[in-house]
Each structure stands twice: as structure tokens, then as C-alpha cells.
Design a protein around this nucleic acid. Structure first.
Lengths: 238, 238
DNA sequence: TGTACATCAGTGAACGCGCGTTCACTGATGTAC
DNA sequence: TGTACATCAGTGAACGCGCGTTCACTGATGTAC
């Protein structure tokens, strides 16, 4: 499949627009994205941008999708590097990867997990699968560690609340497809545990990112590390 | 101290402006607040608002301060109602109060904990003490439970990372003033534990509020409850 | 109690700015014969 | 290889809108004597 010069240029501009949009968001916040400001910086007329994105909302959606795949790739890369390490190092490495990505890409993180942008509403049928894909490496890690019996699900999480079980089954089957062998009903507590751990990570990272933690503890990085070790301890990893 | 009719009216209008601003934020997001829109709704000229707030930023700051005291009051009320209950019920009650407040006041929650508003930067010397005050009831609860020996600090949290200890001392002395009796150095691990628990709460609540949890588990309320019980269990509360 | 004056709430017009989007157009790049 | 035509990138002007803030002003509310 040949890529004409025109297509190459087109892709470069598509990318440029997104890069500049992100940069402007870094400076002004996610809500401040503006086609005209982007056009000014890229030295194009505002109208020209409509050759690339059908509307402002379309551009935002593209940025959100990029952010998800970007996060997913960061996690995947980290996962690959950690193969062969002892289980605790693998878990710790992955949590660090999550935190580092957030700190290095605060705007992408806000796009995904922060306040909605005024006047914009994300098309769920597009963003949700993207979200799901981003978390595959985390699920993968838990799954393989568990199958090697390096992890065990703490007692308390063995019983999933009744109202949650059915949702886990529909949603979680996505992660099952590729690599799970064995009794499916034992898989769901593990998945649930994964979500729980994610909420803890997320709390730490979000509060650090928005500078809520620094005035209290001064060194959020140390706190993060400490709390991750506590999680690993709770998982009974050896 | 007499309150003239003029002052009464003035206070009413000050309050009206804030109420309308919040309502518009609910509809359009925190970043969409606009003096002109408020003026339109209140049936005043835009210029008139400058008799009440020196600028748009001033208004936002007022809203943030209100949000903090509002959260603090909700927690305090809940704390008072829980006095006399057994310790686990007290903890559970307070975590619920935090979650309920967030769900019932999503915009105030976003103002405090969410993305910064483009073009606005909060004056820390004003907002931070307000933040501190809001969390007094939570600190109070942990403190009294611990002094009654209904709570113990899990082993893992007895040692605070070295870089964090000094910050806890300056920041945490605020909570000490009123009611702590006994060895101060044993107080800091408890405070640190409080911050940790808060990050967990916050992760759960934030993800629920931004609808990240529903597609996964369906029933975030059940998950919250479940995780809070797990926290209580970890605290060894009897 | 009435009068004179100061204070304050609120107005309306204006300044200068930015926004998303549409439309008829020009001129360059590609394609079919 | 050259020509005719279709496709596409990009322009510039315009539409209608909203924004925060300033300024000189009117008229009502309070205050001192």
C-alpha cells in the first residue's frame, strides 16, 4: 500500500495540530483548547483546520483516543521491560509506570480522568474501548502472576458483592479472551482486586498531580512508593 | 452590631451571585463560569457585579472557599451524629459522608479537587487553610478512636518515610493543638495513616464521580462500601 | 422632624478581544488517456 | 510524454456570538445636624 506524498503531508499536519493543541492545553488547561489559537500558531487560516477535523469536538476526541493509546503503550513497554524480574519488582514497576506517565503527561491524564470539558461530551462508544485497551497490560500482569501462583487474592476480596459480579462478567470477558486458562469464576475476584488496586493508585496519583499532597507530606513520591509496597505486602507476593 | 437593610440586601445578592454561578457550573462545567451570564440571569447589568466581586477570579476564589467550608460542615455534622456509635460504624459513617458530599456536590468537589480552571490560579495562602479546616473532623475522629485504643496503626505504617516525617510535623501540628494528649511522636504515624486512607477514599470517589467505575463494576456504591469495610478491617477496629 | 450631603447600587454604552463555523474562491497536486 | 480534468489544501472575508472590564452617569438609601 503506497503512501503518496500528499498523504504523508496530510498525516504530518494532522499530527502537528494535535501536538499544538496539547501544548496549548498544557499552558491554559484542557478547557481552553481553541481552533483559532491552533491555526494562528500553525500559521494557517482557521478555516483550513476543517480540512483535518470536522469540528473542535472531533479534535478533542482524537486527543483523548491518543492519550489512551499513549498510556497503554507506556504500560506495555514497562511490562515488557519487567519480564523476568521477581514478582514484587514487576508490580512495583507497573505502578511506577502509571505514576510516571501521569506526571509526565499531566494534560493527557486530565483529558482522560479529569473534569469534562465544557460544551464537549465524549462519544462513549469510541472512548470506552480505548480505555479498556489501555489497561490490558495491568490485567495481563495480574493474570500471569496469579497463574504462576505468585499472587493470591486476599480473603476479603474473594467474595465479590452480588450486584457487581454480573458486570464484571460482561466487562471482564474482554481481558479473558487471550490468555486465561482455568476456572473462570476464580478469575473474577482477581479482576475485581485489580480494579481496587487501580482506585488506590489513582487516588495517590491524582492528589499528587493536583498538588493536594505536597503541603501535607512534602514528598509524594516517597508516599507513593511506601503505599505500593504496602499493596504488594497485602497481596502476599513472594 | 446592627445589620442595616442595605447590608442585608447586599449579603443576599452576594449569596445569589454565588448560587447562580454554581448552578451555571453544574450545567456547563467549572471552566464555563462567566460574569455576563450570571448578570443576565440575575437581571443586572454586567457592570453591577463589580460592586460585589472585584473580578471573575475573586468570585471563583469565594466559591472555592465556600466549597471547603461546606465540605467541612458536612463532615462535622456527620461526626456529631455518629458520636456514641461503635468505632466501625463511626469510620464507615464518615467515609460515607465524604462520598455523599462529593456525589451531591459534584461541582464543588471539582472546584476543590479537579482540574484547575483556565486562566485562574488559586491564591494558596487563602485556600490552603480552608482545606485544612475541612479535614478537621476526619482527623478528630481518628485521634479520639486511637486514644480510646479502638484503632491501631498497622505495623507497616509505624515507620514514616524519612523525607515525610518533617513535613508531617509542621503541617500536622495544626490538628494537634486542641485535643491531643500524650506522646506526640506516636501521633504522626496516625496522621500519616489518615492521609493514606484519604487517598484511597479519594480514588474511589473521584473515579465514581467521573463515571470511570460504572462501566467496569456497575455498582460503585457497593464497591465503595466493600472497600471501606476492608479498610476498617485493616485498622483492626473492634 | 426636615434638610443637606455623602454613600452606595445599579445602568448603559463602549473598548478590544476571542470564539466556531460557513462559503465562494484560488492554485497546487495527482490521475486517466 | 503531454494534455485535460478531478481532487484536494488552503485563503480571506464574513456571520453572529460571547467575553471581562472601564467609565461617566442616575437615583435611591442612609447620616449628621
Amino acid at each position: 500500500m503506497t503512501v503518496t506524498r500528499r498523504e504523508r503531508l496530510r498525516n504530518a499536519v494532522l499530527q502537528d495540530i494535535k501536538t499544538i493543541a496539547l501544548r496549548q492545553m498544557v499552558e491554559q488547561g484542557t478547557a481552553a483548547v481553541s481552533l483559532r489559537a491552533i491555526a494562528r500558531e500553525i500559521a494557517m487560516s482557521p478555516a483550513a483546520l476543517y480540512r483535518y477535523y470536522a469540528s473542535r469536538d472531533d479534535l478533542i476526541t482524537a486527543l483523548i483516543l491518543d492519550s489512551y493509546t499513549n498510556l497503554g503503550q507506556a504500560l506495555q513497554t514497562s511490562y515488557n521491560l519487567l519480564l523476568g524480574e521477581p514478582p514484587p519488582a514487576q508490580i512495583l514497576g507497573m505502578t511506577r509506570a502509571y505514576r510516571n506517565w501521569a506526571l509526565e503527561h499531566p494534560i493527557e491524564y486530565q483529558l482522560i480522568f479529569g473534569n469534562p470539558i465544557p460544551g464537549y461530551s465524549a462519544p462513549m462508544e469510541v472512548t470506552q474501548p480505548a480505555a479498556q485497551r489501555a489497561f490490558i497490560p495491568l490485567a495481563q500482569l495480574l493474570l500471569t502472576l496469579w497463574q504462576e501462583k505468585s499472587i493470591h487474592v486476599p480473603e476479603m476480596y474473594e467474595h465479590i458483592p452480588e450486584t457487581i459480579q454480573p458486570h464484571l462478567e460482561t466487562w471482564g470477558s474482554f481481558f479473558l479472551i487471550s490468555s486465561f486458562t482455568g476456572d473462570a469464576c476464580r478469575f473474577y475476584p482477581l479482576l475485581y482486586l485489580g480494579v481496587i488496586l487501580w482506585t488506590r493508585l489513582h487516588g495517590l496519583v491524582t492528589l499528587e498531580l493536583f498538588h493536594q499532597l505536597t503541603p501535607m507530606v512534602g514528598d509524594p513520591a516517597a508516599m507513593f512508593e511506601h503505599e505500593c509496597r504496602q499493596m504488594i505486602y497485602q497481596l502476599g507476593i513472594k
